[in-house]
Design a protein around this nucleic acid. Structure first.
Lengths: 218, 218, 218, 218
DNA sequence: AATGAATGAGCCTTCATTCAT
DNA sequence: CATGAATGAAGGCTCATTCAT
């Protein structure tokens, strides 16, 4: 029954995204739309993020939204990518110096970095996590994977650690820390100021390492 | 999907269902509806959980659904309560024995219990977390609070531990463990069989305690 | 990106039609919707036949429309079937008597029957023909095929005709007559009263038969 | 798809295009747009013929399209005119010689000419017929009128024919032949190669004339 | 109590048309 | 003249909720 389609469907253009913005005007519009989406999502949750509401907040028409994003889901997906990139960037910036430090100093640094990256936009982060199964690329998991990889690498690199399965340990640690941080950001944001948090997280990591057969104890 | 926005508005009209089922028949219907909701949610996700689909799976009419639940949101809220209760029950069952054990033995037991409680219905658990802001009573957080309380109590009770702020430590530990478990259940369910997981979690907890000034080391 | 769908799609019910109307109320509603669709189509053309307009004319809500028809296209398809059935019925009623008549008498009768069948709802017929490629089952062609078959059968049956390819001749004749009738009904409806039309059509058919090697002339 | 409804309203504002192209460049652009429209229509049907798609295929911007055509409907109208002109031209070319031939020879020639004219662009022809009520000038009917006039003239001119109402007979014949041809082109294009078709059509016409009181039989 | 037909607000998306550059 | 970003009315469709039976 569909609609047209006993005709050739050759008329379509690559279904991902709709236009590669080149002009300055376009870029500004795209930016406005993404920002508006983030704002609506943060402030009013997933259900409120209708195309109409987003367009209104961005100060453009719905049509413009579809000029740059193939669908509402694609828009949210783009926003998720942008958000993860921002988090990843913050985290990456603290990495170079880690390698040269001893574990006892490196871990606290890493915790600080992780806290910072989770602070980028916790509210949006949370909403995006709720949306995950919808924008199915699961980009959000990528950040956790990134954090896990970094941790694993750190564990492998440092000579004073000796683990059976650094991969697993890194993964678990990343999950634990991210679990703490996301809950904290959502439910107890005031704790972020408390330096105890960073200490606690560092101890969490170092404590596990100490028990998992590192040479630290000696 | 529905009346969203307990976000901005935070308004709620007396959140009681419509009828307190007294007859056996009614109770069975309520049960059927709750179970159907859980099944649809698990199998097909939030978007598929329409009142029609739920009623169909429960073998009743939409009308009946509204006989027992004031709205779709109330229904989901009830389901969330039921789910948290189930998790809490599983966890509670392992508590009595904990007190009498030394820390090194108690923590692994606790981890086993936590793993068990998270296994009750991980899929539903995840979906409910996505739905949380809708039925905003935050019942889901209650489980985490419960776990935190238990942990805190354990820490306080055991004489061989000596913490500055057992409340905070308990909370953080609960968050960490729950973070690991929820991620694992969603992304790496196969790891649940691995006994290493329990060991790792125990080491995570014990390691933190060891570093946070317990007397364990001695 | 889609929407839900990392979930199983098992929840769907056969995509054709939505409900087999059983109750009297339902039947009346379906009837009202089909009639309304026909009316809107006749009076205002394909573009005006929006779901809203149809529902309004039927005195029901859009929702009701979708209770009984899976989509706008399915609705139009159903209407087309209904229309073709009506035409076919009118035509069929004149068939039994044809066999026993000599060709020179049978053909005029057939023409009368064809005219009658085309009169069922010419306006709708025309609009439906414009819609054909959309409701792609091409049910409308079925009527022409039916007319062709009847004609072919008549030619084959009658002993005083002797054609090389009665199939082709029947098909062409059906097309010719239907071409005349549809144009006449649309552009010169007043001619339908003129008995000359029937005579002309009969002569058209008999003339062709006479030239295509029948024994009639002898 | 657009402003529909020349059905009920029958209102029209001066149907002139926007600019009469004088420069060579302009003429080429107009040509490109018309050709593009025809192509999109043929290949992908009415629904796909959006201004954007047409402009893209023509290699111009939507803006340019509106530079030369007041609206989408006007564009299609212009295309229809162009198409009918082409068909008329093909038909006209075979006319001069007809007058001097005897009927039995003239009719087959006419049929050949009609077949040729219908072959100009059957696909487009069909789509335009679907679109007719939109660009309601009914230009398409003009071709049929033209064919009818030619046939009528032929009948009147030839001395060996003697009809009561040559006008009516010509009109009916044109409708019959066009009915056959359009159906054949759409549904059985392979029959066009078959010389039997031309014979059948000639017999159809000559048969009718023979029965309608011509002197041919004598 | 149960039923399910009916409702209609509201969502996503498309596309003819305009106009600043 | 050309461009194409922007507009926004309008369309198809869904689904929580109600209510007559």
């Amino acid at each position: 029954m569909s609609s047209s389609d006993n005709w050739d469907k050759a008329e379509k253009e690559g279904s991902k995204g709709r236009r590669r913005p080149t002009q300055a005007r376009s870029k500004a519009t795209v930016e406005a739309i993404l920002t508006a989406t983030a704002q609506v999502l943060e402030r009013s949750g997933p259900e409120a993020a209708t195309t109409k509401a987003i367009a209104a907040r961005a100060g453009v028409s719905v049509g413009s939204l579809y000029q740059y994003f193939g669908s509402r889901d694609e828009l949210i997906d783009a926003l998720a990518h942008r958000h993860v990139d921002a988090m990843r960037k913050v985290l990456s910036e603290s990495l170079a110096e880690l390698i040269s430090l001893p574990l006892e100093a490196a871990i606290p640094r890493l915790m600080t970095a992780l806290i910072a990256s989770h602070r980028v936009n916790p509210r949006l982060d949370h909403v995006l996590h709720q949306l995950t199964p919808i924008s199915d690329t699961a980009i959000l998991d990528e950040f956790q994977d990134f954090a896990a990889t970094i941790t694993t690498t750190a564990l492998r690199t440092h000579p004073d650690t000796n683990l059976d399965d650094p991969e697993l340990v890194g993964s678990i640690l990343a999950q634990a820390v991210s679990g703490v941080l996301r809950t904290t950001l959502r439910r107890f944001p005031e704790r972020l100021g408390d330096p105890a948090l960073e200490g606690l997280l560092s101890d969490l990591v170092l404590g596990l390492l100490g028990r998992q057969g590192s040479a630290t104890e000696a």
